[in-house]
Design a protein around this nucleic acid. Structure first.
Lengths: 207, 207, 207, 207
DNA sequence: CATGAATGAGGATTCATTCAT
DNA sequence: AATGAATGAATCCTCATTCAT
């Protein structure tokens, strides 16, 4: 499908990808201008549509492309030997923060995509997100050890509380970071804070 | 500032407000068309700009207007005698669900506004949200009784876990509801689920 | 529907109508450029679309508008007292030639419309043409006297031969005229030729 | 001129011809897309323009090519021994219907070409049509026997009436056929109808 | 108060054709 | 011979805002 694009010189591929990434993350799908993208990528107006049928396809290609890149790195870095549930969550959250620090533009793009309201792409995005969610769940929580949980605890709801806590913390952190520049993210501080929360939860959930 | 608009016949005010609300919640700030708004409200193009300097002002007026309406109803319905922290959270969450069911259009508008990426209004919205958040906090958690908490618990982080749990549950619920129609929301089910989570948290946090 | 347009100053209406008529008859629906139309009419790009939702509506409005003009003049000039079939056909054909000479641009537009292949407008045009054909038939051939026909003649097929002869002659004439300029059309010659054909047919069909 | 193209493998020639035929008959000259043609023919963009200087040349080559094919078959099937004028017309019309049924795509292409308004090709087409018309006339009506005509009849005008009757019938038939599918064409019915008209004309013209 | 005509830059996309490989 | 990348002008149409009436 996109073999045409992938045969382009890597330099030009990258210019197009980065220009599009930047424009979409800054302005969202609808307001992003293909004019700006070609200007930034220094290609002609026609070429963009030679490789991508339309704006929607460009956007979705970008999404799939960067999801793959991030996912690959994510899964390759997970310590699959750690089978304790809370420790697995800890790792996931920490890895997320690290990747966010390493690829801020991509994560901005993901954020924009997540909140995209445009009917054109919303359904496609939701379809992809569902798939990603399901496959992630399977990969990340298979063979997980839940034996440490206190007896009588509703494990499903407990897991939800853990997830929502990590999400909530993550969101709050991102809000704070928008005010500072990316470089000022202090990983140590974040790690320490994550540990605090996980210890609290461990006290509650584990025997 | 908007005295001109507020002197209009209530009928016309309402037509404009509803037309704008509908357009903005369906399409978001950028894509919303003032053309469609005036058509729906059955007023002339010029009149809209007679009352609101520009699209941005209309949007922000709308936001302030409906925030006020919702907040007033919210605060008037809170049982200020309930001073237990978890019970207060319970009430807040339940009230939110009730208002969401009563005014779905307004909440759609709020959701759209919350995720609005347009540079034009984003800063203004963030300013307002910060104010609302701060003043809400003061109103909702002043004179709250935290004496029931287990000794040695980090109350601030515990509160965050409660907040994030309620938020997480709320978000998940909204995702589910998007698939059904508004009428099918089953408040009893939701209430029961909220109670489950709060009981879990109570077990952990309370002595 | 087009009340907005019809409230415009007659001067501007005419400029727009003529510019569009010219562009559409010269290039056909698809290739006609709205850019050229606004340039020729000396109005802004936006204004055209303020009055007509899109190119299609403009085209169809033009069609309806000029059909009405031509039809009104046509029907007002027919001698409704002449009830002989061949004489009625004679009148119709002559009137057509006169109107063609008077409004060559409009007839060019009609020709272009008749052969329009663009899916966008084809169906709408066919619908209109069917209606026009049916109503014309009713108006033009009601109370017609066919008593002069020879006995035993298949009147329906005879009428078809008359129609096709008049059509064929008309088409041939138009082909010839394309090579000359409009002014050189010699009505006397045409009239004489029409009479020749009708006399031939009269010899055959009438007792 | 087109020796390059004619040296191509017959398979590829045919793919290109059919793809172009299909695209041009469906969309007309202007709207036909060379992109679609190469896609359908499964050749590269450059190759098409290697063989045909431009779209116009491709179109005209196609026209000449299929005119030749159809004409050859047409002339080979005419019964040159039949020298009666009306019978010759009968044969021409019937053969046309048969060829139309056999090669519907080609005739659609011819129809589209006949009504083509695009300045690019219109003049060239008219030139060709004139030549074809003249040479056809010479071939088809040389050595024709007109001795059966009633004395005193204006033979040239009589012939025109016959031509226009056959044309008119043919056009009407095609209009009807557009509504049905090609397979439903009932040749017997058509033949019978043609005979009716020719008998009528025979009564008038022949002694 | 109220109207709606007017603007023109900017939106995404298509197009036939060229040319280096 | 054959490829397909590259061009950029042209396409229709939308938009928020202004202003004369």
């Amino acid at each position: 499908m996109y073999s045409k694009f992938l045969n382009l010189s890597p330099d030009k591929q990258e210019r197009i990808l980065n220009a599009a990434l930047k424009e979409f993350s800054q302005k969202g799908y609808e307001k992003a201008s293909t004019n700006e993208i070609v200007k930034e990528a220094e290609i002609s107006k026609g070429l963009l549509f030679h490789y991508f049928k339309n704006k929607k396809e460009l956007f979705l290609f970008l999404y799939d492309h960067f999801v793959e890149i991030i996912m690959d790195e994510f899964y390759s870095k997970i310590d699959w030997n750690e089978r304790d549930l809370l420790m697995r969550f800890r790792e996931i959250t920490v890895l997320e923060f690290e990747l966010m620090k390493k690829y801020p533009d991509i994560f901005n793009f993901f954020m924009a995509a997540y909140h995209e309201e445009s009917a054109d792409v919303k359904i496609e995005l939701e379809k992809r997100n569902k798939e990603i969610l399901v496959s992630s769940y399977q990969k990340l929580f298979t063979d997980i050890d839940t034996s440490k949980f206190k007896q009588g605890i509703d494990i499903n709801r407990a897991i939800n509380i853990i997830i929502w806590t990590m999400e909530g913390f993550s969101n709050e952190q991102q809000k704070k970071e928008k005010l500072r520049s990316v470089d000022q993210i202090n990983m140590d501080e974040i790690l320490s804070e994550i540990n605090h929360y996980l210890n609290l939860l461990k006290t509650f959930f584990y025997a």
